[in-house]
Design a binder for these strands. Structure first.
Lengths: 222, 222
DNA sequence: GAATAAATACCAACCGGTTGGTATGTTTGC
DNA sequence: GCAAACATACCAACCGGTTGGTATTTATTC
């Protein structure tokens, strides 16, 4: 395995009291997204966060508890980010849905670990070994999908779309496609497949709500 | 972590000479799909396969090499399985595409580890730490997508679908949606989200090739 | 508001077990 | 007899987790 580690210039300043927990969580999000949950050791996590192992086990009962807490923390920070995002502005709920998809596409940039999803990565490894982590990851995914559901439902009502699927199912599909895009992007080594997937998803929404894909291409804000 | 291990009744029969490698690969596919790559130790893998560690390192230079070999082995066995599958029978290439999607939906059954994808699981953990494994997983995904591409291209030509996307992009999308479905299914703890995702994917294909989703519901063979 | 008690936050050192990997055999088929 | 296919024994490093302890903050008492 290739493990290039830049030589860090020691750690002179001590972490201020009261910051250990939040530093551990921030560092955990980064390391788990880069390496996965199992490959992220408690030792390495503490070293990277500039905190001792005593502090770690003071705040978390076990590594499993840290995983569940990291999923919850991920939900908090991302939901705050999405709540503040500009895609809620349009009056037409369908416009808000398309603005959401454009926003998600815009987020897919830079380093792969920087745009992928923590809970999608983590649940792959832990769904069979830790029900606590699995449940926390599921809550994160379905919770975020739920914030989309109202707009989708409103758009369906407005357009009179009587579909053989629910708004909930369509909201979850957006997360499914994004998660799949992250995997194919990781496999390819670049963001391309993830962006393509979102473009197809937009086209699917255009078919459903407008009966044609033509406007989907025009809609692209980016 | 919950780790229920059934008490195995010892291993009386010795593994016949020449079978160690294939047994290690078969066992690796199972364990990695259940637990992930990092959580599958060489010791546990050997024990489960009924083989010693000496045999393991005789056949594989390292654990990383085993991972790459497992991805290749996965490609071989699954491509043989898909080549023999009945979805190639229809004359119309579009019917073959829909038959493929029905076939994929039919495979989503039983234990979660039984219908999920090895390389999708493995590339999540290793894309940043092992380029050899990442490349092997990518080859598996794109290689399988390529077997679909010809049918999609033929269907596009036949229907005169001049789309702002390529047949290759659409073929890869099917894998993206499946991979995403496996993640949301793992998170939910049941196959539901994966089946929903395939249903939406069929509808997308129906929109593209038939201009309407109505026939997609009728098409469902299952 | 000073003295004290109690809880919290954190640290360095350590523990038994497991990790991936190796060195050195022995057995088997040709 | 010789190489390939295994087996046995072993190793240093690392794993998650525990220990006993100290510094700091907060709550309580008078």
């Amino acid at each position: 395995m290739n493990t290039p580690n830049p030589p860090e210039p020691a750690r002179p300043t001590r972490i201020p009291r009261g910051e250990a927990r939040i530093r551990l969580l921030d560092t955990a999000l980064r390391l788990i997204r880069e390496q996965g949950f199992a490959a992220t050791s408690v030792d390495a996590l503490c070293k990277e966060a500039g905190v001792t192992k005593g502090a770690f086990f003071h705040h978390f009962d076990s590594k499993e508890a840290l995983g569940a807490a990291a999923a919850d923390y991920w939900s908090e920070t991302t939901s705050a980010m999405f709540a503040d995002a500009p895609y809620h502005a349009p009056q037409d709920p369908l416009d808000r849905v398309f603005a959401y998809l454009d926003f998600r596409a815009a987020l897919i940039d830079g380093e792969i670990a920087g745009f992928t999803c923590l809970v999608g990565t983590m649940v792959q490894e832990t769904y069979g070994s830790s029900d606590a982590i699995r449940a926390a990851c599921n809550a994160s995914i379905t919770g975020h999908a739920a914030t989309l559901e109202a707009d989708i439902q409103a758009a369906m009502d407005m357009r009179g779309v009587g579909a053989p699927f629910t708004a909930q199912s369509l909201a979850l599909l957006t997360q499914t496609v994004l998660q799949g895009g992250f995997i194919t992007a990781k496999a390819a080594g670049h963001k391309g497949p993830a962006l393509d997937a979102v473009a197809h998803l937009k086209r699917y929404f255009a078919f459903i709500f407008e009966g044609s894909a033509t406007r989907a291409e025009d809609r692209s804000a980016a």
